[in-house]
């Protein structure tokens, strides 16, 4: 198979783009897809101070790497979850990356905050993955605002977005569908949030990480076993294989056709947490409740 740009031996085949690429041309393609997302959704400019939420996984390290390579002003934020045999390894990978790239890294340790995930798991009957996500989003937002960042960038890729959309449509979770977007604008108390990898698939991100030699966490979080989205991703991959391009069509069709209708009926959060000021539907936000405030 030959590269469609330069005719050298291809290393990557992308059926959804009807293309195959050699290493150099793939990296050019990948950076262009990220730039296209940043520009078409007006995510940020070179003047903005960007905070990248990094977990140590391939997606977040890929995002941080590509933003630095493209010349953006991007720092990292790592939330240490306090999960034995996982969080320290992830922290080590992120710290090494930051050191190699001479980039600024902020670390929040949930043990210091009184809510390490293993303790949270003991305290609640809720699915710990959703609470963990809620806690991380809380600190991404709080740290970003406190440290004067313009925008928070996360490593969600096209497969993440499509599986989430698929799940929200299957269960008609209207409140989540309203919030599903590559860009969530800033509001009072909420930092602008963006997903610059929303045009690239999990496979493309993995290829980029491989070509760039990124050293990322390759072990599964012990609490994430059997996550529903992974099952949806497998089903969606079968559809994509039979009909290449379905994933991006599904996602872009949603953004173009359904999202504008949903936005009209959106209910804005009006309350602020009386403890920390974080936007919430009740008097005290869920993170402050976990910390014992009522």
């Amino acid at each position: 198979m030959k590269c469609v740009r330069c005719k050298k031996q291809a290393e990557v085949e992308l059926k959804s783009h009807n293309a195959a690429f050699c290493r150099d041309c793939f990296l050019y393609f990948f950076e262009n897809q990220v730039l296209k997302a940043i520009k078409s959704f007006r995510m940020f400019t070179k003047k903005d101070k960007i905070l990248v939420a990094v977990s140590g996984g391939k997606d977040s390290l890929t995002l941080w790497n590509v933003l630095l390579d493209l010349g953006y002003n991007a720092d990292g934020l790592f939330v240490h979850l306090g999960i034995e045999g996982f969080s320290d390894i992830a922290k080590g990978k992120v710290e090494r990356f930051a050191k190699e790239r001479n980039a600024k890294l902020i670390v929040v340790n949930l043990k210091d905050e009184g809510i390490p995930i293993p303790e949270v798991k003991k305290k609640t009957r809720r699915v710990v993955c959703s609470l963990c996500g809620q806690i991380k989003r809380y600190y991404f937002n709080m740290v970003g605002l406190k440290e004067g960042y313009d925008v928070l960038a996360t490593g969600h890729n096209l497969d993440d977005e499509v599986s989430r959309l698929f799940s929200n449509v299957l269960h008609w979770k209207m409140e989540y569908l309203v919030d599903q977007s590559p860009v969530l604008p800033s509001e009072e108390g909420l930092l602008k949030k963006v997903k610059p990898l929303c045009r690239v698939t999990e496979y493309e991100t993995s290829v980029y990480a491989f070509f760039k030699g990124l050293d990322f966490v390759d072990i599964e979080c012990p609490y994430s076993k059997g996550a529903t989205f992974t099952m949806y991703k497998k089903h969606l991959n079968q559809i994509e294989f039979s009909s290449p391009g379905t994933k991006i069509d599904f996602y872009q069709g949603f953004l173009k056709n359904l999202k504008p209708i949903l936005e009209k009926r959106e209910e804005k959060i009006k309350n602020r947490c009386k403890i920390c000021g974080y936007p919430t539907f009740s008097d005290v936000c869920s993170v402050c409740r976990l910390k014992g405030y009522t």
Binding site: M1, A10, E11, V12, E13, A20, G57, K58, D59, C129, D160, E202, Y203, T205, S206, V217, D218, I219, E220, C221, S224, A227, T230, K233
Partner: peptide, 22 residues
């Protein structure tokens, strides 16, 4: 390697899954 590459003799390859491990 892309799908069309043909392996011969004792060639060895490694296959790695690409799912996010959360």
């Amino acid at each position: 390697l892309t799908r069309d590459v043909v392996l011969r003799d004792n060639e060895e390859i490694e296959i790695k899954t690409v799912y996010s491990k959360g």
